[in-house]
Amino acid sequence: MSITTMDKWAELRTAYQVATLGTVSAAADRLGFHRATVNRHIDVLEAELGGRIFIRHARGYTLTELGEDVLRVAQKTHEMTNDLAGRIAGSKAAVTGEIKLTILAPFAKLLMGAIANFRVNNPKCQVQIDASENLARLEYGEAHIALRAGARPEHPDYVVASFGDIGFNLYAHEKYISQNGLPKDTSELHNHQFIAPPPNDSRLPFAQWIRDNIPLDRVALSSRNVEVNIAAIGAGIGLGFLPDHEAEASQGFHPVLPSNPDWTVPFWLVTHVDLHRTEKVQAMLKSIKDRQNPS
């Protein structure tokens, strides 16, 4: 994207409205422009970028791949401009619009209390959660806040804060225990059935321990999907690893082995520097912090 494109604020705003509303007429009404002005703004922006932003068809406008990138930039600009306008006006009006969080599905419940508090204080702001395993690109506006596991993110434009450590352990459900009992120690593991991720899945902190201690022929069920494995452990199919918070929040799970610091994963709250200070992001971060450290 050309550096001089960043001077095209009016054109970016117009493109954002066309992309959001789908037609030139709707964008013109929203902006108070003539249709010709909207078309001219699009032409100027496409000439600046050297490619098409939209594909024109009978029902309206559809974004090209280049247009998707432009929309992300325009959306961030739109949010920051609205936030600045509110601050200049000194308004304490309710936060509105949408705030998007990205997190792995098994850990979403860690944020639900904070989201509930956020919604009480900001009922006009809709929360959207992306539970995909794909890392959202915050620099493209794909999410406002990300909860990430593992090594501390090092992107130079990310604002990173510790969320805390999440521990795992080997658990058995009472359904399994009633039929098979529990191993006294690791020497008896070969007598039991297990739920485990695929052997080549190295993302998890206990993956190496599984490879070293659990024979493949004792794995009753294997899935890369953590939620599937949790359901299988809860059904009593075998022993398996769970996040400690998941076991504590559910009934019937019992730890099999002593806690192991090697099975602990650090989690991070991540925002992009451009949106970190916006009202909605600060409001959600405050809700998360208050939930972690209740007064």
Rank of each mutant, 00 (worst) to 15 (best):
M6H: 13
D7K: 14
E11V: 04
A15L: 07
Y16G: 01
V18S: 04
T23A: 10
T23W: 05
R35K: 14
H41V: 04
E46C: 07
E48Q: 15
R52I: 05
F54Y: 03
R56S: 13
G60M: 06
G60N: 08
L71M: 12
Q75S: 15
Q75N: 15
N82L: 13
D83Q: 05
T96A: 07
I99R: 00
T102K: 04
P106V: 09
F107W: 12
M112I: 08
C125T: 02
V127K: 02
Q128V: 15
G141W: 04
E142M: 08
H144F: 05
A151W: 09
P153E: 04
E154N: 13
A161G: 11
F163M: 04
D165T: 14
N169Y: 01
A172G: 09
H173I: 03
K175Q: 11
Y176K: 01
Y176P: 02
D185I: 07
S187T: 15
L189M: 08
N191G: 13
P198C: 11
S202F: 14
S202V: 14
D212Y: 09
N213K: 14
N213R: 06
V228G: 04
A231F: 06
A231H: 07
A231P: 00
G234M: 01
G236V: 03
G240F: 01
D244F: 08
E246N: 13
E248I: 12
E248D: 15
S250I: 03
S259Q: 11
P261C: 08
P261G: 08
W263T: 04
P266D: 01
W268A: 03
L269C: 05
T271F: 04
H272C: 06
K286N: 15
K286Y: 12
S287T: 06
Q292K: 15
